[in-house]
Design a protein around this nucleic acid. Structure first.
Length: 456
DNA sequence: GCCGTGACGGTTGAA
DNA sequence: TATTCAACCGTCACG
């Protein structure tokens, strides 16, 4: 197990145990690392290489980095983490502050939550950075995102940018062109907006419209690729609203009724517009909305364990039934479903401060195994936090003791019919997270670790 | 010393 | 099935 240990401007790859030790002693405690071969990984090219000599001579004096023998010095991805040997194959890095992170992967929601939480308590970002051992750039980014969107969650990673020139849009462009052959591209663009075919977030650019006119519509006599008589493939006309879960304004009424829809344009929610009233897992109000819905459905009645009744197996489906969403929506279904199943949690973990997001909303399916590591070692103890009073959201040391046996019990939620179904895995795993409600990164990691060992 | 920002190396998932 | 591409991530360094 290797880490890239960054101290100063260094990026050293060290073993997990060494990195954990380094994190435990804190960034200022040099020389605590084990002794063996030193490997330096200059991730940042000349910049880092330039800084390297300085770093090597600074701080805690001579530092010997531990044995780096292993399968490969090449950084591995989280994909290698699955399986029983996940613990041995987990990679991570330690930043300048001694905090552990996984390059390319979001910080656990527990940390993101705590960043926002501390900020709301009036703690300066620089102090938050030091406290949580997260780079100030990251703290700044998370806070900025939170201020902008009300969400602490990371954005959607991966995937392709949804097309804006959907068949429906092309059809309308064709219609406009047929109605007025002299129409300009910018006029088409305005009409798409005016008619509600698109909104400002997914309206094609003028150049795109020109390209459509040139390539797809070129000759109006020719039947286009998206003939009206054909059944157009279901296309999300406003995918960003959903995939990215940002509170973008949408030309949709809160009831899901598409406003100003063009005649002939299907107005189903599956078509475009995911109503912003949908309880997005990324927003405060939507989290609360989920809670309300769960309470209404009685899913939260009883204790925490009872909160996840077998009915919860169809939690996503229940939500889908309660809101206008089409099962035929491609591209929208998965994000929506994952948002449902990954970020649900019981009401008891909701914040009293303002509900950015409960820590246990750790997106298990998205981040699972990334931080798979002995949780106690993952996060260095660091300075006591919070200094005075307990945090309002995630009681430090709440001590969600997660043991394999308990996980096994939790895993009884795993529905046999969903074996092999990623969504099923997401579903039951997310319930495991929700059941234990890890409110700290350690707890998240502990849950995740046991889930990994459970050969999910 | 704090903070915003861009470069960078990395991961992810749809096409 | 493998590859490509474009989104995202957190860290780091600069100003």
């Amino acid at each position: 197990m290797k880490f890239t240990l960054g101290l100063g401007s260094r990026a050293w790859r060290v073993s997990w145990e060494q990195a954990a030790a380094a994190a435990a002693v804190g960034p200022g405690a040099g020389g605590a690392l084990g002794s063996s071969s030193l490997r330096v990984s200059c991730r940042r090219g000349p910049r880092l290489a330039r800084a390297l000599p300085l770093c090597l001579s600074g701080g805690g004096g001579a530092r010997a980095l531990p044995d780096c023998s292993g399968p490969s010095h090449r950084r591995s991805g989280a994909r290698q983490l699955a399986g029983p040997r996940a613990m041995e194959q987990t990679y991570g890095e330690v930043n300048q502050l001694g905090g552990v992170f996984v390059n390319g992967r979001p910080l656990p929601n527990a940390i993101r939550l705590r960043i926002v939480e501390l900020a709301q308590l009036g703690i300066r970002p620089c102090d938050i950075s030091r406290q949580l051992r997260v780079s100030h750039g990251c703290v700044s980014k998370i806070l900025a995102r939170y201020n902008e969107t009300g969400s602490i969650l990371p954005g959607a990673i991966g995937g392709s940018k949804p097309r804006v020139t959907t068949p429906n849009v092309v059809k309308h462009i064709r219609d406009y062109k047929q109605g007025d052959p002299g129409i300009f591209a910018w006029e088409i663009r305005d009409r798409l907006l005016a008619d509600g075919v698109c909104d400002k977030y997914n309206v094609p650019s003028v150049s795109s419209i020109s390209r459509i006119l040139r390539n797809k519509i070129g000759s109006l006599a020719q039947p286009g690729p998206y003939e009206a008589s054909k059944q157009p493939p279901p296309q999300p006309a406003l995918p960003y609203n959903h995939i990215y879960q940002y509170p973008y304004p949408s030309p949709v009424s809160p009831t899901g009724t598409k406003m100003g829809s063009h005649p002939g344009v299907p107005g189903s929610a599956g078509h475009v517009s995911i109503p912003r009233s949908w309880p997005s897992a990324h927003s405060v109000s939507n989290i609360l909305g989920i809670r309300t819905f769960m309470e209404q459905t009685g899913a939260l009645s009883g204790g925490e364990g009872a909160a996840y009744s077998p009915k919860m197996e169809d939690w996503a489906g229940v939500n889908r039934a309660a809101f206008p969403a089409s099962p035929t929506v491609n591209g929208l279904e998965k994000p929506a479903l994952e948002a449902d199943i990954k970020y649900t949690q019981s009401a008891s973990s909701l914040s009293a401060v303002g509900g950015f997001l409960p820590a246990c909303a750790y997106p298990a399916s998205n981040q699972h195994s990334v931080y798979s590591a002995p949780a106690a070692s993952y996060l260095s103890p660091g300075p006591p936090w919070p200094p005075a009073q307990g945090p309002p959201l995630a009681p430090h040391g709440a001590g969600v003791a997660v043991h394999g046996g308990e996980l096994a019990a939790a895993m009884t939620f795993k529905h046999p019919s969903r074996e092999g179904n990623p969504r099923g895995r997401h579903c039951w795993k997310s319930r495991c997270f929700a059941l234990f409600q890890p409110s700290t990164m350690e707890q998240c990691l502990l849950v995740d670790y046991h889930l990994s060992r459970a050969k999910m």
